[in-house]
Simulated scan of single mutants.
Amino acid sequence: MNRFHVHLNVARLDDSLRFYTRLFAREPAVVKADYAKWMLDDPRLNFAISATGRAPGVDHLGLQVDSGEELAALGQRLDAAGQTVAPEPDATCCYARSDKLWTQDPQGTRWESFHTFGDAVTYYAGDQACADHSAACAAPAPAAVASTGACCAPSTRCA
Rank of each mutant, 00 (worst) to 15 (best):
Asn2Cys: 12
Asn2Ile: 14
His5Val: 10
His5Asp: 11
His7Pro: 00
Leu8Phe: 05
Val10Asp: 10
Ala11Asn: 05
Ala11Thr: 03
Leu13Glu: 07
Asp14Ala: 13
Asp14Glu: 15
Leu17Ile: 09
Leu17Ser: 06
Leu17Trp: 02
Arg18Val: 14
Phe19Arg: 07
Thr21Phe: 04
Arg22Gln: 13
Leu23Asp: 05
Phe24Gly: 11
Phe24Tyr: 11
Ala25Gly: 12
Ala25Glu: 14
Arg26Gly: 12
Glu27Leu: 05
Glu27Thr: 01
Val31Lys: 10
Lys32Ser: 06
Lys32Cys: 08
Ala33Trp: 15
Asp34Leu: 07
Lys37Thr: 15
Leu40Val: 04
Asp41Glu: 15
Pro43Arg: 00
Pro43Phe: 02
Pro43Glu: 07
Pro43Ala: 05
Pro43Cys: 03
Arg44Met: 06
Arg44His: 10
Leu45Pro: 05
Asn46Ala: 09
Ala48Pro: 01
Ala51His: 01
Gly53Asn: 03
Pro56Asn: 14
Gly57Asn: 06
Leu61Met: 08
Leu63Thr: 12
Leu63His: 09
Val65Pro: 04
Asp66Glu: 13
Ser67Gln: 06
Ser67His: 07
Glu70Ser: 09
Leu71Pro: 00
Leu74Thr: 11
Gly75Pro: 00
Arg77His: 06
Ala80Cys: 03
Val85Thr: 00
Val85Pro: 01
Ala86Glu: 02
Pro89Trp: 04
Ala91His: 01
Cys94Ser: 06
Tyr95Cys: 08
Tyr95Ile: 02
Arg97Cys: 13
Arg97Pro: 03
Ser98Asp: 11
Ser98Met: 11
Asp99Gln: 02
Asp105Leu: 05
Pro106Leu: 11
Gln107Val: 14
Gln107Pro: 14
Gln107Asn: 15
Trp111Arg: 03
Trp111Gly: 00
Trp111Leu: 07
Ser113Cys: 11
His115Cys: 01
Phe117Asn: 03
Val121Cys: 10
Thr122Met: 08
Thr122Ala: 10
Asp127Thr: 09
Asp127Leu: 09
Asp132Leu: 04
His133Ala: 11
Ala135Trp: 04
Ala136Gln: 15
Cys137Thr: 08
Ala139Val: 15
Ala139Thr: 13
Pro142Cys: 01
Pro142Ile: 00
Ala146Cys: 12
Ser147Val: 15
Gly149Val: 02
Cys151Arg: 02
Cys152Lys: 02
Ala153Phe: 02
Cys158Arg: 07
Cys158His: 08
Ala159Val: 04
Ala159Phe: 02
